[in-house]
Nucleic acid binder design. Structure first.
Lengths: 160, 160
DNA sequence: GCCGATAGTTGTATGCGGCAACCATTCCGG
DNA sequence: CCGGAATGGTTGCCGCATACAACTATCGGC
């Protein structure tokens, strides 16, 4: 029959496992890069992505939407990044309330270092994987996240 | 060529996406079950699993190892669960330092409620998935977590 | 019976994240 | 062109999750 509850419960268990794995993974980061708390890296990376892609540079508000984080959280995180010299704020000439975020050279370097570190770890952990398996997993993971979020990101899309 | 760094970086990005999705998912929980902080549920569930399976009941130490959490974290989490009436501690007759953990009826009920809630959400989010896709994803996810953790759980296994 | 190992608890600190209140600026309707 | 509503951002305050270190109580072997 098509209920599938058992399958979903197993999936749920494995999601928990994955969270555990990610926690361990991330606990290793500070040892290598004491200055960059894990959560901060995602934001750093997103700033980098956003600075390159839309018309204008990266604004805090949009950044918050893209990360699904509260503006206050972004504000603090960005403040930390600025204090650490990884990100710079420049006044938005078009709107005195906003500022445009971008990576500093140090920020780019740090992002690249941390990414390389993560990549190494992954390469080691996944050394038995065939490329097509990796690709399949990535595709399924993408779909999973998208479907999980579909209920929530309506407002975000609508706000655009 | 076989480097695969680009593929891994894409995977990394999607792992971040997934963490975002999970965060949103979990932010919904308190609305339904105010009394059970999300992190606590994993522990509750693990106690349930462990109580049923090994020779003896569930001890804090083993619980910590299974969850890859610090004993102090487990101690606090369990204390919360006990205060909420979801878990009971019974003195281990064989070791005065330890106690055995088990779910109360209320704990079983709560776990079952929360699991049903999560299952509903998943069923909704994954309604377009074919059973075999779900199974494939679950299998890959399992393998991924295992491989990611393989570097870390050596000590845990060795300690057994 | 003493001493080292062990199970658990508690003190303290940090990262992450939300909500509400607030400030400054911008935008819009009259 | 002015005044009030909307908006971008920051700050205060909170709670959860987690770790490390110090401590307590017990166990186990010699």
């Amino acid at each position: 029959m098509t209920d599938g509850s058992a399958a979903r419960r197993e999936l749920l268990a494995h999601v928990r496992e994955m969270l555990r794995a990610v926690r361990l993974f991330k606990n290793d980061l500070p040892a290598q890069h004491p200055a960059v708390p894990f959560g901060t890296v995602s934001v750093l990376s997103m700033i980098d992505v956003m600075a390159a892609e839309p018309p204008a540079g990266c604004h805090g508000k949009e950044l918050a939407a893209r990360c699904s984080l509260d503006p206050s959280t972004i504000s603090r995180t960005v403040a930390t990044l600025v204090r650490s010299g990884l990100v710079q704020r420049t006044a938005d000439p078009a709107d005195g309330r906003a500022s445009v975020l971008s990576l500093t050279p140090l920020g780019r370097q740090t992002l690249s270092d941390v990414t390389a570190w993560a990549d190494d770890r992954l390469a080691d952990a996944l050394k038995e994987w065939r490329p097509d398996e990796l690709a399949a997993f990535t595709a399924l993971l993408r779909r999973f996240s998208t479907d999980l979020m579909s209920r929530y990101d309506q407002p975000l899309e609508a706000a655009r």
